[in-house]
Amino acid sequence: MTGTTKTITIRRDVTAKSKADAAVERARLARRGTLVVNLLSSPGSGKTTLLEATARRFASQHSMAVLVGDLETDRDARRLRPLVPTAQLTTGGACHLELPLVRRGLEALGDPQVDFLFIENVGNLVCPASHDLGEHLRVVLVSTTEGDDKPGKYPKMFRTSHAMIVTKLDLLPHVPFSVAAVTEDASRIQPDLDVMQVDALDGTGIEEWCEYLNEERAKRLAKYE
């Protein structure tokens, strides 16, 4: 093949459109008073259990809804539905949630006007870190059974999070896990990270977590007024 070749300079963010779409959704939900919280962690860290405890605590004070992502099944949604309006997002094999799926979940719930919308992401400390779902607050959970060396292994997840919650505090006497070590490891990557500790089964730390959510809601939504 012969022919002429020309090079076109582009300099464009490949992900610009998805970032812009997420920003639009973030502003839309903020203006109607909804704080969107993206919950991320490894599988089995206690995201659903934390949401059950949060729903019980908030029951009479705040309205909330949950979108829960998994590859298959509606097991998490079935646990949460008795407590809070919940839509299950099934990714069919994909390792993370993306904004179009979140929108579909919101539609399934009738686009509810709630104080808090929790998105329980697919259990994975890698890919979900790279996808903006229009959230105002990104919270990563680390359970005491996972080991305190996780933050350094998954830097993007911890760099892009606002808060870290150490879960399964009741197991601390039985596992080689140091809250101080995990906090230090995470704060090297994100010095502004807020750190909390919970045992969602007996309720330890849930009051502090819910107070934190209220403060963050007031602070973060004020920016859109």
Binding site: G3, T5, T7, T9, I10, R11, R12, V14
Partner: peptide
Amino acid sequence: RGNVKTISGDEFHLLSVSLSEANAEF
């Protein structure tokens, strides 16, 4: 020892595309 602002390192940018005009046969 304070926090810092990332100024580069999170990019996934398309910089350029080279295109060719083929001959009529191609």
